[in-house]
Amino acid sequence: MRLDKFICKSTELSRNEAKKLLKTGDVKVNGEVAKDPAMQVHENNSITIDGHELVARSSRYIMLHKVAETICSNVDEIYPSVLHFIDVDKAFDLHIAGRLDADTTGLVLITDDGRWSHNVISPKKQCPKVYRVWLRDEIMADELPGLVEHFKAGIQLQGEANLTRPAVLQQVDTDEVLLTITEGKYHQVKRMFAAVGNRVVGLHRESIGNVKLADLAPGEWRYLSEQEIAQFK
Rank of each mutant, 00 (worst) to 15 (best):
R99V: 03
H65I: 07
A153W: 00
H65V: 08
V41S: 00
N119G: 12
A194C: 06
L100A: 11
D142G: 06
Y186D: 02
K66P: 09
L64R: 04
D112Q: 13
L135W: 03
W134V: 07
I181F: 12
R191D: 11
R15S: 10
M39G: 01
G31N: 05
F151A: 10
I110Y: 10
K19M: 01
P128C: 06
D113P: 07
Y223P: 14
L178C: 05
L135M: 00
L213G: 03
V196N: 04
M63K: 08
M39K: 13
R222S: 09
I47A: 01
E149D: 12
E226L: 13
V148K: 12
A161Y: 08
K35L: 05
P123A: 13
G219K: 00
D173Y: 04
L179Y: 03
E183G: 09
S207P: 03
V29G: 01
E183R: 04
D113G: 04
S117W: 08
L147D: 03
K233C: 13
R57H: 15
K124E: 15
P218V: 08
P145Q: 07
L64H: 07
K190L: 11
V120Q: 04
L83T: 12
V120R: 00
Y79Q: 13
R165D: 13
A141Q: 12
E228H: 11
L216R: 04
L157N: 06
E220C: 09
T105L: 03
T48D: 00
G197Q: 10
T174K: 09
L107W: 02
I110R: 04
N198M: 14
V27K: 01
V196C: 06
K125S: 13
P145I: 06
A141Y: 11
T104M: 05
I49R: 01
H150E: 15
K23Y: 10
G197F: 11
T48P: 00
W134Q: 10
H84C: 13
Y223K: 12
I139Q: 08
G31Q: 04
R15I: 11
L216Q: 07
D93I: 07
D173V: 03
A161W: 05
V130F: 00
Y79E: 15
D175H: 03
F6I: 02
A141L: 15
E69T: 10
P37N: 11
E183V: 11
R191I: 12
G197P: 12
V67S: 15
A167H: 15
T24Q: 01
S14V: 06
V148F: 03
I47S: 00
L216D: 07
E183Y: 09
A153R: 05
V196D: 06
A167W: 15
E206W: 04
R2H: 06
E206Q: 10
S81N: 14
K90C: 09
H150F: 10
A195P: 06
L203R: 03
L109A: 05
V33T: 10
I7N: 00
M1L: 07
A153G: 01
K66I: 13
G51T: 01
A153E: 14
E53A: 04
V33C: 02
H95V: 10
L216K: 05
W221V: 09
G184S: 03
I110G: 08
L178H: 15
E138L: 02
Q40W: 02
L157D: 08
R136K: 06
S14L: 05
S10A: 15
E183C: 11
T174I: 12
R205E: 09
I121T: 14
L144H: 04
A217D: 12
S46F: 02
